[in-house]
Every structure is written in structure tokens, then in C-alpha cells.
Amino acid sequence: MTLSLASSGGFPLNITQPAINVFLASKQDDNGQINGLTYWQVANGYTAVALHDTWSNTTSNVDVLDGLISTVEANQPDCINEMNDDSMWWSICLLEMYELTQNAQHLNVAETIWNHVQRYVVSPGRYNINGVDMAGVVMWTNKTNETQVNTIAAGLFSELSARLACQTESGPTSEGLLEYAEYTLKWILRCRFVQDEYLVLDHIDLATGQSFDWSFTYNTGQAIGASIATYNAMKLNGTDQTELQYYLNLATNMAVNAMNRTSWIDSDGTLTERDAYPGTGSDPTPAYQDCDAVGFKAILLRNLTRLYILLKNQDLNTGLQAQIVTFVQWQFHSLLTRNCNGQDQYGPWWAGPVDLPTSHSQLAALDVMAAIHAVGTQGQGYGQ
């Protein structure tokens, strides 16, 4: 039959909420996490669920999320572990929950995470790699002998700083937070950014000076998120229009290039990132498909959706708005028609075939389930 993607009759909620229910069915009551997922990926799953409630104007999952997050905090105080990026994925989740519920506890823990990670931001002159100052980057872990720095930790700290600057008057000053947001984002642009492709690369080893130029979707996706958050904080702070426009242009150019990058997007428009993990590209081995990289593409989709919301709310760049809408709607369509087993379970390849659904593949689908509510569903008819 054909389903019109309209809000009447509960559609697409009758598709998106069951996908969440399947994901949450794997919750572990003893620690608040999801069976089969690593710690940071659980945070991403809960972030997608919170965004689903926000963007669908529902509160179906708030109580469950609050309970799970409370259990996580009881087992992992303030959601902080030795991985700075892990801790910050949880801070982003907590900010989404704060914006959804206005529960100050979520904001307080996000601030605590910021204060913890800020101690691992590299100061000017401390490291110089190939003639470039590493100032502003965040150490990957809080281990005393850590030498790895990467764009995910930097992008997360930039976004966290900027969003806290918009949300709180306590703790660090709003102006100081905004300075950190720019400081860290500028490290990405100085050290890990391919200007002519608007592509963000992965990490650097400070001990050896070696660069690892992996170009995963979530590196660029998180940089888009950081640029959006910095733009929003600057606008709230009354920043000069020229500087504002720089960060908006940065986000939009990364988005346009991401949606047209052939190594990430199949010829039919499906976001697949075939070389990111085993089971696609040159390695067809499906036995290893249940890995963190299955969810990388979801971070890109999430931040494309955030960019759409910014553009729509400020009536900017309507051409890109339309492109993002079409892009998100197509991912939703592909999941429904080519990557669902009929039991609300989704496999790792958004272009299909369904293959074996796992907690990782279900997690990745949740950002699509949230995004479809943000972009709207009018005027489309998808067979199912």
C-alpha cells in the first residue's frame, strides 16, 4: 500500500515511535544503558530519542529517558568517564533533555562535564606539529600520558561551550564560553579542515606528529553542529554580522558538500558511507557489522537537520532548506522500503538489504526517525 507522509492518522508517529520502542527494549535496568552498545553510543541513542520528542512535539519518552539517565548518573557520576568525547556525548544528550524538560539537573550535569573537560584543552604554545600550534584542541582522554587529539572531541567541546553560553548565566561567563567555542572550532579549521572540499579529517598524534586523515561522516557532521551552535551563541551575544555570516557559511558549505560527496552518498541519494565499517565497500564481511561506525552517519544527518531548523527559523537560504528536506525524506523512505524487516527493526545499510538488525543499526535509524518530524512530511507518497 501507499502511505502518505502526513501527520494525520498518527503517521509518521506510528512508524517512528515503534522504532524507539524496539531500541529501548534492550535497556539495562541495572546501569541505565542499552545492551550491545558502547557508552558513548548509548548517549547518542538517548539524544535521538529526546530530539524525537522535541521535533514531534510529544513527550512520549521523557519519563523513560529521565529514569535511564538517572541510573546512568548513579553508576557513572556526572556521566564522566576517562574518554573526554564520551563524557561530552552525554553532555549533548543532557542539553537536549534540559531543553525538552527544563529540568535544571540536566543542565547542571552538562556544566559539570564542561568544567571537567576544560582542563584538557591544549593551551597556546604547548604543542607545535609541523609548524602549527595545536592550541584549542581537546585531549582524547584524561589520562596523564595521552597524546591523541581529534576533531570529534574538539567539535563536541565547541558545541557544548556555545550551547552553554546560550543556556546559563552560572558557572563560566557567557562571553568566556563563547570564546572557548571559537577557540576549539578554530583548531579544527586550522589543523583538520580540507578547505576546497569542506571536509573534516580525524585525528593527530601529538607524540609522533602523525596525522590520521580518516574522513568519517561524523567528523564533518559534528563540525556542522559546532558551527551552528557558535552562530547561535554569537547571534544572541550581538556579534558583528560579518563574523556571524562566516560561521553560517561554514555550516552551509559543509552541508552542501556532505550531501553530494560520492564516498558517502549512493547514486540514488542514500546516505551509506560504504567504506566506514565492515560489510560495505571493499570488506563485505557482515560478521563485524555491529560496530560503532554504523552510527557515524546518524550524527551527520542530525546536524543537517539542526541546520535546516536554523535556516527555517530565520528564513535563510530556502534552496538549502529544500535540499535538506528532500535528503532527510529520502533516508526515511529508504529505511522504510529497503531496510526494515517488518518488525520495526532496521539494519545497518540504509540502502538495504535489511541484513541483521542490531542495537547499533537501530540506534542509527533513530536520528532519521527524529529528523522526519523536524523537516515535515507533506506532499510525499511512499510505497510500503
Score class of each variant (00 low, 15 high):
T2R: 05
S8K: 10
P12W: 02
Q17H: 09
P18M: 08
V49A: 04
A50V: 07
W55G: 05
V62E: 11
D63S: 11
I69D: 00
E73H: 06
A74G: 10
Q76G: 01
N81G: 09
E82I: 06
C93P: 04
L100H: 09
A110D: 07
I113N: 00
I113S: 00
W114L: 10
N115L: 11
Y120D: 13
Y127Q: 03
N130H: 14
D133Y: 12
G136L: 10
V137W: 02
M139Y: 13
N150L: 12
L156E: 13
R163A: 05
T168K: 09
T173Q: 08
E175N: 11
A181R: 01
L185F: 07
F193Y: 13
E197A: 11
V200F: 03
D202G: 01
D202W: 01
H203G: 01
D205A: 05
D205W: 05
F212Y: 14
Y218V: 05
I224L: 10
A226L: 06
S227H: 07
A233L: 07
L236F: 02
L248F: 10
N249Y: 07
A251F: 03
T262P: 10
W264R: 07
D268E: 03
D275R: 05
T280A: 13
T280D: 13
T280W: 12
D283V: 07
Y288R: 14
V294N: 02
F296D: 15
I299S: 11
R302D: 02
N303R: 08
L304P: 00
T305E: 01
I309R: 15
L310E: 10
N317I: 14
N317Q: 09
T318N: 14
Q323E: 15
Q329N: 15
W330P: 04
Q331Y: 12
Q331E: 15
H333L: 12
L335F: 14
L335K: 13
T337N: 08
G342L: 11
Q345W: 02
W349K: 15
W350L: 13
G352H: 01
P353L: 04
T358W: 03
S359R: 06
Q362D: 06
Q362E: 11
V375T: 03
Y382N: 12
G383C: 14
G383Y: 13
